[in-house]
Every structure is written in C-alpha cells, then in structure tokens.
C-alpha cells in the first residue's frame, strides 16, 4: 500500500491510518519533493510544473521498490497524482483510494470546482503571510524571540514542514491544474472517499469524479472537512478496509 500525502502536509498525516494496514499490507509512505524530509535539491521547475512530474515520482518509487498490485491511497491532490500514474502504468496498480479528490478546483462553464480564479490568487498571496511564519529565517522574528532561534527551528521541523518556495509552486500546480480530460482514461478500480462539508473538494466534485471514473465507488463519509485521515481516522480506515 502506497500512501501519498496531499498539499500542505507531509507523510505525518498518515500517522493515524497507516498502522491499521501494517498487518495486511506492506505500507509505504513518502514525502513529495519539497515536503517533509525530502531532498529539496531534487526539485526541478520544469519537471514539477505539472502533476505529471509528481506522477512520475510515484512510478519511480514503484519501479525502484519493484512494487506490484499496489493499493494506492492518495489524499487531496495526490488522489489525482495517483490517477495519472495509474493511467500510465495500469498493470502496477490493484486499486486506488482517492480521499477528497478534485480534478479541477476552479469553476468552469457547466462545472463547479468550488473556487473562482481570484480565490486561488488570493490564497497564493496569503501563503506568503503564513509561510512567513514557517520559513526558517522568519520564524524567530514572528515568534518575537529572535534570541531563541531554536524555537523557529523546532516549529519548522515539526509536522508538515514544507519548503515555502516549493510549497508555493506546488500550490500553484495543485490548484491551477485541470485534469478533467484524463479521468476517463483510468482503467484501475477506484474508491472515492467524500467528506461532508469539504470546502476544498465539495460533494459535487466527488460526484463528478464518480461519474467520470468508470467502475468507481463513492463513499460519503460522516467526517467533515478535508482531512478525514486526521479528523476521523477510524471511519477512514474502515471505509478503506471495506473497499479493499
């Protein structure tokens, strides 16, 4: 089982879910380039200018570890990354579990993605404000403890650490991508976990994905928000187990 974290966090987000599968699966978690403890030098503007680059990474992991019959669990943007990877090499995958997937976050004619383009632009601006808080250089300033930089260190090294520059680019790729045309190409069975009241991937988007992924299963969860793996790990684990 390959667990792929979404935008904004790192593999820590699977901490409540992963143990439940360690009996039945070989569980592999990883950090996308730019997140967690990944090697930041591996980031390449060109490669990661579309989700295909991230999909290539997933396939490289599968090749390097020679994984077969992979159950891929992707959260948020990684759900789409998993879809793209499975389109390219369907033989490697057994099933996909897509948590809060969205092929396109921006509204379009006859499509509700949940956001206007301006919302995304504003979000990108606000990233600056918050990454100010997380960046190594600025953390002590904001903390008001310039004489204790280790506080900043601690903060940035804690959960969901992300390189701010890469995170901003990742955000751009995540929220500006439109992978709707790719959905119909998927041949691997997929489970869609749709939370209640998820502003990032609303129910209509879940329905859209369900309609366009042939042979997919949609489970509406009681959990609210965008991260059921954190807010409702038990329900999430149960839904995945039921499907697999």
């Amino acid at each position: 089982m390959l667990l792929a974290h979404g935008y904004g966090c790192d593999q820590n987000m699977w901490r409540f879910v992963a143990p439940a599968f360690e009996e039945s699966h070989r569980v592999i978690r990883f950090d996308h380039v730019g997140a967690g403890k990944s090697d930041l030098r591996a980031y390449d503007d060109e490669r990661y200018s579309s989700l295909e680059g991230y999909a290539s990474d997933v396939l490289e992991i599968i090749h390097d570890l020679d994984l077969r019959d992979v159950d891929f669990v992707g959260h948020s943007v990684s759900a789409m990354v998993g879809v793209l990877a499975a389109i390219r090499e369907p033989d490697r995958f057994r099933k996909l579990v897509l948590i809060g997937p969205s092929p396109c976050y921006i509204d379009d004619v006859d499509y509700v993605g949940g956001f206007g383009r301006d919302d995304i632009e504003q979000m990108l601006v606000s990233l600056d404000s918050n990454y100010l808080g997380w960046s190594t250089a600025m953390a002590p300033v904001i903390m008001g403890n310039p004489e204790r930089p280790e506080l900043g260190e601690e903060l940035t090294n804690s959960f969901c650490a992300t390189d701010p520059v890469i995170a901003k680019k990742f955000a751009r790729v995540t929220f500006l991508s439109d992978n709707r045309p790719d959905l119909h190409k998927l041949r691997v069975p997929a489970l869609i976990l749709q939370c209640a009241d998820d502003v990032i991937a609303p129910a209509v988007v879940g329905d859209y994905v369900h309609d366009h992924l042939e042979g997919s299963t949609l489970v509406a969860m009681n959990a609210t928000g965008h991260c059921p793996n954190l807010s409702a790990p038990d329900e999430t684990v149960a839904a995945i187990k039921a499907y697999l």
């Binding site: 935008y7 956001f115 979000m123 606000s126 990233l127 998820d198 990032i200």
Partner: peptide, 8 residues
C-alpha cells in the same frame, strides 16, 4: 483563500 489554508 484562507479556507484552503485552514483545511490544508
């Protein structure tokens, strides 16, 4: 925009 930040 901040809703996204909140969720992610």
């Amino acid at each position: 925009g901040d809703k996204i930040w909140y969720e992610t």
